[in-house]
């Protein structure tokens, strides 16, 4: 027994007391284990038979860059198609017209219920069942019309529309019905109410999952390689069948996918900020602003209880 304890509780003056925080031994053990595991992985890769020079060389190789550009292009096109068609389907599903809402439901049922890979192959081989396209004003051989790009666009975009429709529907339904009533009471018609009042508020709910869909699409577009669309994965795959550096080429491809998804994650952050307008009392600072703030005030950064140490 120490002397202090023998003194009894009341003999220590309150201001002399210090609080001792709980020690988290479990955290130290957990962190140590994870670091050890990570080190093992790094060691394994450092000693693996990877030709890092090949990875570096091919990172900016023409065909790879073209592939990345095509991946980006088909992703943007398919997402735009999916977004527009998805919005339309969402409005149809919410419509009072039973035919419109059933058709929208049927569309979603079919396109969500079959694998996108199957849909891609179906579009690409459409000439087996229709050898000509005849739209009245436009007539051509199906084989000339259905290029890998168009097949990829239709396969990915129409599939995406089914998912976007559900996301948009959830967004539209999340807007309080009082908003529609207020707009109608002011004499706005249904279209204006939707465009000016409901959709801008629905966007807050729609954007986060849409960003997710976009990033998914960047990766799912690699499936279009099976219908000979020259996107990123196909570029890497083709090269690897010549230089036999399969793992190296897949690493090159992965780096590019990571780069694309990272850039879009950042874009999504700013888009969400824009549509959060009016929902919070104050907008949080952007990461850039936060960084700048930290750099300019780093001297007073370490604070304890409001006092500079």
């Amino acid at each position: 027994m120490s002397l202090d304890l023998d003194k009894g509780r009341d003999e220590v003056a309150p201001e002399e007391l210090t609080a001792v925080p709980v020690r988290h031994w479990g955290r130290w053990i957990g962190a140590g284990l994870v670091i050890a595991l990570l080190a093992m992985v790094v060691w394994a890769f450092a000693n693996a038979k990877i030709n890092w020079n090949v990875v570096g060389d091919y990172l900016t190789y023409d065909r790879i860059m073209e592939g990345a550009l095509n991946t980006l292009w088909i992703t943007v096109c398919a997402m735009v198609l999916g977004l527009v068609l998805g919005m339309l389907l969402a409005v149809m599903r919410l419509s009072d017209n039973p035919v419109l809402s059933s058709v929208a439901y049927g569309y979603i049922w079919f396109f969500r219920g079959t694998p996108v890979l199957v849909q891609l192959v179906l579009w690409y081989n459409l000439s087996y069942i229709f050898d000509t396209v005849n739209l009245g004003f436009y007539k051509n051989e199906m084989n000339d019309v259905m290029t890998p790009f168009l097949a990829a666009l239709l396969g990915l975009g129409l599939n995406e529309a089914a998912y976007m429709a559900e996301i948009a529907r959830a967004g539209i339904k999340s807007v309080d019905s009082g908003q529609t009533e207020a707009a109608q009471a002011l004499g706005m018609n249904g279209t204006k109410t939707m465009r000016r009042i409901v959709l801008p508020q629905a966007m807050r709910v729609i954007i986060p999952p849409s960003g997710n869909e976009f990033i998914n699409m960047l990766k799912t577009s690699s499936l279009a390689s099976v219908i000979y669309f020259d996107e990123l994965f196909r570029a890497g795959d083709t090269i690897s069948s010549r230089n036999l550096a399969v793992m190296e080429m897949m690493m090159v491809v992965s780096v590019w996918y990571l780069l694309l998804t990272t850039v879009f994650s950042i874009g999504q952050y700013y888009l969400e900020r824009h549509f959060a307008k009016g929902s919070d009392r104050e907008q949080p600072p952007t990461p850039l602003r936060r960084l700048r703030q930290q750099l300019t005030t780093f001297r007073t950064k370490s604070r304890v209880g409001g006092e500079t140490v």
């Binding site: 009082g178 908003q179 009533e181 207020a182 009471a185 801008p200 009016g278 929902s279």
Partner: peptide, 14 residues
Amino acid sequence: IGMVFQRFNLFPHM
């Protein structure tokens, strides 16, 4: 005809 609602129903994004 102007209308004022119990729960205001202002447009929050404006």
